[in-house]
Amino acid sequence: MNLGASQRIGVLTLGYKTKIPVMIHPGLSKKWETLFKKELPGIFFGIEVRF
């Protein structure tokens, strides 16, 4: 489980290892100003290449 943030959004993802040195990070993102409002989070997808 990974937690990331910028000045505008927060992101919560799960990392999946693959057989090649790449990790896939699907998760959810939400703007800070709408964090506690009844609004659905956005979908986040990231790729991490490991050396």
Rank of each mutant, 00 (worst) to 15 (best):
K38E: 10
K30N: 15
E48R: 05
Q7S: 10
G15Q: 09
I9P: 00
I24P: 01
H25V: 01
A5D: 01
N2Q: 10
M23W: 06
M1P: 00
I20H: 06
E48S: 12
S6W: 00
L3C: 07
K17Q: 09
K31R: 14
K19E: 14
K31A: 06
T13H: 03
F36I: 03
G27M: 04
Q7H: 04
K19L: 14
A5V: 13
T18L: 12
M1I: 06
V11K: 05
W32S: 02
L40D: 07
S6I: 01
K30S: 11
I43S: 05
E39F: 00
K37R: 07
G42E: 14
I43T: 11
T34G: 00
K19N: 15
L28M: 09
P21T: 02
R8K: 14
M23N: 08
K37W: 02
K37L: 09
F45A: 13
F44N: 15
K37E: 15
S29W: 13
F44P: 04
K38Y: 05
F44W: 14
K17R: 11
L40G: 00
K37Q: 11
F36G: 03
F45Q: 12
I24Q: 02
L12N: 00
F45S: 05
G42H: 09
W32I: 08
N2V: 08
F51T: 04
L12P: 00
G27I: 05
E39T: 12
Y16M: 13
T13M: 00
R50L: 15
K31D: 11
K30C: 05
G27H: 09
R50W: 12
H25I: 01
L3K: 01
S6G: 12
I43A: 11
W32Q: 07
E33L: 02
I20M: 07
I9A: 11
Y16C: 07
L40F: 05
L14A: 04
T18Q: 09
Y16E: 08
K19F: 14
L14N: 02
I9N: 14
A5M: 12
R8Y: 10
M1G: 03
K19M: 10
S6R: 01
G27N: 10
R50E: 11
H25Q: 11
Y16W: 14
L12H: 08
H25S: 04
L3P: 01
G10L: 09
E39G: 03
G42W: 02
E33S: 07
R8M: 07
F45T: 09
F45V: 15
G46H: 08
G46Y: 08
M23S: 06
F36T: 12
G15Y: 06
G4M: 05
I9S: 10
K30R: 15
P41G: 00
P21L: 01
I43F: 13
G27D: 11
A5Q: 06
K38W: 13
G27W: 10
H25W: 08
M1F: 09
I47H: 01
K17M: 05
V49D: 00
P26Q: 05
L28I: 15
L40A: 06
K37Y: 06
L12Y: 13
T18E: 04
Y16D: 02
F51K: 08
P26M: 03
E48T: 11
I20D: 08
P26W: 09
L40V: 03
L3A: 09
I24V: 15
T18V: 04
W32F: 13
